[in-house]
Each structure stands twice: as structure tokens, then as C-alpha cells.
Nucleic acid binder design. Structure first.
Length: 435
RNA sequence: GCCCGAGUAGUGUAGUGGCCGAUCAUGUAGCCCUGUCGAGGCUACGACCCGGGUUCAAAUCCCGGCUCGGGCGCCA
């Protein structure tokens, strides 16, 4: 590379650069030799640019160098920009010098520039190469925008970003399986959720906190919408009830989608995403109404049961947009979900649903320590295992509410991907631990 | 974890007892070609997941294993 530095990304060239000397850097996307003229297409993060080598205008030496290149090799090209309507994009570069920084081995694990489809599994084995396809890179550019918008929205709303431990001594709330790890002489676990820690922060006076971090689930699920390691977007707000945080959630979703539509036009087009901003306020469907819809569609759900996958799909089809399910039975929601004042069989818990899957769940939390202990016992947990958590409720705990949102689920919805593994760089699922 | 399906060149596929010394596309290599843009033309290269079994004969049928996919369950 020497003293050479990239002067422009391919997408930055315009008629203002006519006859200018530029230096571009990227991967050899295509090589086409027509005899008297050769075309190299160099690809970088922002697009592609054609390098044209007419025998009459470039040295034999340079032509020889270009023809020896393999696809996907890394090169820097210094040359003169020429506007030419025959070139894709309207511009091309007549090279003066080409530096081959890394010759790619052949054959490639799969084609980057061709039209042959490749199985997801094969692609994931060589994810670095997969990301060289712009439609794949687009998904991750959208992902970046989603996470940026989350921070923008929550920061503007006065939330403080926190980080809580991922190595913990006990199960957060029972139910799910944890990955055991070795912590010096003790057994420990990878945390399934920041739930208990963010609730403890409600006792701290920070009032409104959020965390974007990994969660780990040792469940043996193996589906298109489950991961064993994923990113959770969690908030917790003091002096708030479930309705308050549902409003935050729906407004945040709308803000994210609006932002993505504005800032990722090119990427959305590339991945053919039909994302639409939801109409607010989102429908609040009572649990009871939800099972009625399922039952009407001949999917049996009994009161007190969680909604099965076919039930979720049937209801989502009926609603057709994001929606909340509220008034869940207390017994199928975690111990920390606050029962409703007028009927304790129901809870102040909610799920946010995309027509095809759940993307978030939350609740107003129990802040009364006696009730909290009672509910732990009801759900088969021993309050003594949770002293570190319960202590925070002993010395002044305000009413509070919050939710956890699966980042990949949301990104999957926004990018119209049918497999969650498409929206995470290196998925961890039942079968895959490498790479 | 359960049920179902599938494993054929680097990639994606056709072939479901003999017609297969295995199809097509892409790729790779070489040659021709001065404006390609899914470039084109010609030539060559490259594969039946592994192990057992049935049969005169197995890519094809059976059994086991491994891997992958779909559905479900499980799942703050």
C-alpha cells in the first residue's frame, strides 16, 4: 500500500471528478477481457466502479497485471476519472497504476458476483465473503441504523445507558435454561436477561435506564426466529406503569422505522424490504380476545395457556400490523409482573407482536416486596436465592415498568427476512458455534 | 427434544434400479474477440456424505451414522 490512500469510495465519484486523478481501493468484483479492451470492476463499501483498460491507452505491463488478477483480490487503483455513458454508473477510471495488495485464492467458497444462489449454511461458513454481496451488507447497514435510532430515541427521552453483568450466579427468573460456565472455583451462568439488574436500578434513582446487550438462552429451540445468543434492547422506567412504557415502545418502533426509511433507502431497496410505519396507537388486543380469534380459526387455545405458534400466526394475520396483547393471565407471566388492581388473575404484562412473531414483552413490575416474594413462591422459586435482588426492594422502591425487545426480531421485521440468522453476523443456534 | 424431508463438481442443480464411463448453469484454466455491463463464442477441468447390507447390477432400494433444511415443541 505504501503511501497510497483511498481518495474516493466508488459511490462518491461524480462529474466534478472528470479528468481528476483518484485512488480507489477494494475487491475485484469482475474481470472481463474483450480482447482489445479489458474491464475490471472494483467493489468497495459504497458500490462498484469500472476500471477500463483499452490496449491503446494502457501499457502491456498494466494489462498483464490486470489479467493475472483473480476475482475478490484486493487492489488499489490510481487513475483518471472519465465520464462515459457506456460505463455503468456513467463513470470509469483509466488506470495509471494498479497495486495488488492481496491475491485471492481460487476457486472461491461460493460466488460473490454470480447469479447462483447459495445455501444459508454455506454462506455462514464464509460469512466474511457473504458480506461482500451488497444485499447482505445492506442488512447490516440497516441493523446499524436501527440500533442508532434506538439510542437516539431513548437518549432524547432521558434514558441512561447502563451495562449489567453477563456472568451471574443464579438463574434470573426460572423458566429458561442457562448456559453453565466455570467461574474460578464456582459454577456460574451466562445471563438470560438483564431483568433483575435493571429493576435494581429503579431503586437507585437513575429513574430511566436502558441496556443494549447480549442475552443467552440454552433452550433447544431450532427455528427461523430463535437464537441462543442475541441482542436485547431493555428499558426500565421508574414512576411509570405498563401503559406508559407501551407508549414509549410503540413510539420508538415508529421512530426507528421512520429513520430507517429515510436513511436507508438504497439498502431497503436492495433487500426488497416492504417495511411500513405502523399506525399509532397500536391495537391493544386483550389476551381473551386473542384466544377468541385463534379459536375462531380452529386453533385451540385454552384460557391460561400461552399462545402457540399457529395461534400467533392466525392472530397476526387477522390484525395485519404490529399490535399489543395485554391483560395476560398472571400465572403464565413471570413473578415480577404486577397483577391488575381489580382482578389479580390478570397482569399488567404485555407482548408486542409483529404479525408473524413476538418481538417484545414487558410489564409494570411488582414493587411491593411481600407480593414479590409471594409470587416467587407461587412460581416455584425460592426468594432466598434472590436476596441480592430483593434487597433493592427493602429500602424504597418506586413503582416501575419496562420491557425487553429482541433486536434481531425487530431487524428481521424491518428487513423482511424470514430467517433470524440473516440479521446477525455470526448466529449461535442449536447447531452452530463456529464461526 | 419430536415429526417430516434432503445430502450429486468450488457453488446451485437434473437424474429415484441397467438408458449414468452422471444433466444443466455458474466457476476455474486456455484460446478468439476494442465498449462490455447477467458480455459472447470455442475447448478443457471438476461431483454421487460416510459405513454396512440387498441385487447379476445401486447415485437410485434397506439399515446405522453424520450433516443440512422445513414444521412443531420449548422459550423474559
Amino acid at each position: 500500500m505504501g503511501e497510497w490512500r483511498r481518495s474516493h469510495y466508488s459511490g462518491q465519484l461524480s462529474s466534478e471528478n472528470q479528468d481528476e486523478e483518484v485512488t480507489i481501493a477494494g475487491w475485484v468484483h469482475e474481470i472481463r477481457d474483450l480482447g482489445g479492451v479489458m474491464f475490471l470492476v472494483v467493489r468497495d463499501r459504497e458500490g462498484e466502479i469500472q476500471i477500463t483498460l483499452p490496449d491503446s491507452k494502457v501499457s502491456d505491463n498494466l494489462s498483464q497485471k490486470a489479467s493475472n488478477l483473480n476475482k475478490e483480490s484486493v487492489v488499489m487503483v490510481r487513475g483518471i476519472v472519465k465520464e462515459d455513458e457506456r460505463a455503468p454508473g456513467g463513470f470509469e477510471i483509466i488506470p495509471e497504476q494498479i497495486k495488488v495488495l492481496s491475491q485471492a485464492k481460487t476457486p472461491l467458497p461460493f460466488e460473490v458476483s454470480g447469479n447462483v444462489n447459495t445455501d444459508l449454511s454455506t454462506r455462514l461458513n464464509s460469512r466474511f465473503l457473504d458480506l461482500r454481496r451488497s444485499e447482505i451488507a445492506s442488512i447490516f447497514k440497516v441493523r446499524n441504523t436501527v440500533l442508532t435510532k434506538v439510542r437516539e430515541f431513548l437518549e432524547t427521552d432521558g434514558f441512561i445507558e447502563i451495562n449489567t453483568p453477563k456472568m451471574v450466579a443464579t438463574a434470573t427468573e426460572g423458566g429458561t435454561d442457562l448456559f453453565p460456565i466455570s467461574y474460578f472455583e464456582r459454577e456460574a451462568f451466562l445471563n438470560q436477561s438483564p431483568q433483575l439488574f435493571k429493576q435494581m436500578m429503579m431503586s437507585s434513582g437513575l429513574d430511566k435506564v436502558y441496556e443494549i446487550g447480549p442475552i443467552f438462552r440454552a433452550e433447544e429451540h431450532d427455528t427461523h426466529r430463535h437464537l441462543n445468543e442475541s441482542i436485547s434492547i431493555d428499558i426500565e422506567s421508574a414512576f411509570a406503569d405498563h401503559n406508559d412504557v407501551m407508549e414509549i415502545l410503540e413510539e420508538m418502533i415508529a421512530y426507528i422505522i421512520e429513520g430507517v426509511k429515510k436513511e436507508c433507502k438504497k439498502e431497503l431497496k436492495e433487500i426488497d424490504s416492504k417495511v411500513e410505519e405502523p399506525e399509532l396507537p397500536l391495537k391493544r388486543l386483550r389476551y381473551e380476545e386473542a384466544i377468541e380469534i385463534a379459536n375462531q380459526k380452529d386453533i385451540d387455545v385454552l384460557w391460561g395457556e400461552d399462545l402457540s405458534t399457529p395461534a400467533e400466526k392466525a392472530i397476526g394475520e387477522e390484525i395485519g400490523d404490529y399490535y399489543f396483547i395485554v391483560d395476560w393471565p398472571s400465572e403464565i407471566k413471570p413473578f415480577y409482573a404486577q397483577p391488575k388492581d381489580e382482578n389479580s388473575d390478570l397482569s399488567k404484562a404485555f407482548d408486542l407482536m409483529h404479525p408473524e412473531f413476538e418481538i417484545s414483552s414487558g410489564a409494570q413490575r411488582v414493587h411491593n416486596i411481600e407480593l414479590l416474594k409471594e409470587r416467587m413462591i407461587q412460581q416455584g422459586l425460592d426468594p432466598n436465592d434472590f436476596d441480592f435482588y430483593l434487597d433493592a426492594f427493602e429500602y424504597g422502591m418506586p413503582p416501575h415498568a419496562g420491557w425487553g425487545l429482541g433486536a434481531e426480531r425487530l431487524i428481521m421485521a424491518i428487513t423482511s427476512q424470514s430467517n433470524i440468522r440473516e440479521v446477525i453476523l455470526f448466529p449461535r443456534d442449536r447447531k452452530r458455534l463456529i464461526p
